[in-house]
């Protein structure tokens, strides 16, 4: 299990490669990558700031990773999440699961990203093209 909150741009493929399990031991890798759009609710977005609750965020991500590892027949999990200033095109989140077969890998990966979006304490603040700043209030 790997959980990381990072404040710099990251390459999800590099993390996947580095974290990959021993060849032959797994048959499926499911991944989700969330990337920043340059638009939201009809407006052009120039940049975003992602705030989080240090330590509670990691604790919550650890809890949902533990649940996923207990609930599904999977081998490992990975969650990487950006905080700080983010630009359109930057990756925000990477979730990955490894398993013997695709069904538990897909299901656990979906569970992790849905739980993260529903309850992990992160908050987005957008800067629009006209420099207006607003908090994103729905996920």
């Amino acid at each position: 299990m790997l959980i990381k909150i990072i404040s710099n741009e990251f390459n999800p493929w590099k993390y996947l490669q580095e974290h990959e399990l021993q060849a032959g031991k797994f048959g499926a890798t499911a991944t989700f990558i969330g990337t920043m759009r340059d638009y939201n609710v009809g407006d052009t977005v120039k940049s975003m700031f992602l705030e989080h609750y240090p330590n509670m965020t990691e604790k919550y991500l650890q809890q949902i990773s533990d649940i996923a590892l207990q609930r599904w027949d999977i081998l490992d999990t990975l969650i990487i999440h950006r905080v700080g200033k983010i630009l359109p095109g930057d990756n925000i989140v990477l979730v990955a699961t490894w398993a013997g077969h695709r069904a538990p890998a897909f299901e656990a990966c979906r569970f992790l990203i849905e739980e993260l979006k529903a309850k992990a304490p992160f908050w987005k603040r957008e800067t629009l093209i006209d420099d207006k700043i607003r908090w994103v209030n729905a996920n």
């Binding site: 992602l50 989140v93 992160f122 209030n137 729905a138 996920n139």
Partner: peptide
């Protein structure tokens, strides 16, 4: 204790 608005990560 912490108070915060609905979360919007991911």
């Amino acid at each position: 204790v912490a108070f915060f608005p609905p979360v919007t990560g991911g």
